[in-house]
Amino acid sequence: MTLNFAHRGSLTEAPENTLPAFKKAIWHGAKALELDVQLSKDNHLIVCHDHKLSRFNKDAEGLIKDYTLEEIQQIDVGETFSEEFKGVTLPTLDQVLHICPADLLLNIEIKNIPVIYDGIEQILLKTLHEHDRLNNLVISSFDHVALKKVQEINSTIPLGMLFYYRILNPWDYASASGLNIQSIHPNQIYVDQTFVQSCKRNGYDIYPFTVSDQERYKELLEYGVDGVFSNNPEIFKS
């Protein structure tokens, strides 16, 4: 069965990684959701991809880590998308978990590069435990040290290993890492049939990112991917 992830929610219909974007993805019937977490200055889990806020609000200078939760909740990240979403702010992970059905698979990416958030792994797992969301979950990161820390805290959580650039035999790297890697998440640009077959042969699911073109999606399905991360509702709701 193919399992596609709504990448940062339905980001073509609402500001990415916000409650409206996640609600729209859920409304579409998405079976899986991808989101990113970082830490505020006062150690709250903020759902956002960029370390800087300037792409969403030109008046917001500095990094997420420079703002307290109270300050972040005063920053409008919706108006740059459209007037309809004026006043929308970045949510906390708590807020997102409140609206996610239990049967919705969550892929939570720890955004730990280039900013390294000391202790984010423990805060994340504590929050998930409080919401009884330690099941139906994948934690992923480009920072594989962060994945190691997650495993040291809770060895039962499936991990997704993200790769942006091509490396030699990432399936061998994943195996040699000693981590509980369930899936490999490569940049879709370099994924071909040999890549997919090698991942599968070594026991890894494969979910390329970010696939929004229908023809490319069909091609990847023919290669045998288990699903994709997508911005396209016609893909992520299928």
Rank of each mutant, 00 (worst) to 15 (best):
G203P: 03
L11R: 15
H7R: 08
H28I: 01
P15W: 10
Y204N: 13
R55M: 07
F229M: 13
K24S: 15
E109D: 09
N57T: 01
S212Q: 09
E130C: 00
F5G: 06
Y207H: 11
Q193G: 12
K111F: 13
K65H: 07
K86V: 05
V228S: 00
I181H: 13
K218S: 04
L221C: 11
L221G: 02
K52H: 15
K237D: 09
G119E: 06
E13T: 04
S155K: 12
Y173I: 07
S54M: 00
E61Q: 14
N154S: 02
P114V: 08
P20E: 06
N57M: 03
K24A: 10
N107I: 02
D42R: 02
D205K: 15
Q182E: 13
E84G: 01
K31H: 03
R166A: 03
N136K: 07
M161C: 09
S40M: 07
I108S: 08
S10K: 00
V196N: 10
L11Q: 15
N135R: 07
D226S: 15
I235R: 06
Y223I: 01
L19T: 08
V145P: 00
Y173W: 12
S140K: 11
A14K: 11
Q188L: 10
I153D: 05
G203A: 11
P158D: 06
N154W: 01
Y204L: 10
Q197D: 14
K23E: 14
H144I: 05
D192M: 04
H49D: 11
M161Y: 06
I64Q: 03
D50F: 01
S177T: 15
I72G: 03
N17W: 12
C48M: 14
D132M: 05
P233E: 14
D66R: 01
A102L: 11
Y173L: 01
T89Y: 01
I184P: 09
T92W: 08
L11V: 07
I99V: 09
K200P: 04
A14D: 14
D36G: 02
N136M: 04
Y190H: 15
K218R: 13
A102M: 07
E34C: 03
D103P: 01
L137M: 06
W171P: 02
E109R: 03
I110H: 11
L39D: 11
L124N: 10
P20V: 12
L137R: 15
I153N: 04
L39E: 05
R55A: 13
F142L: 14
M161V: 02
P20F: 15
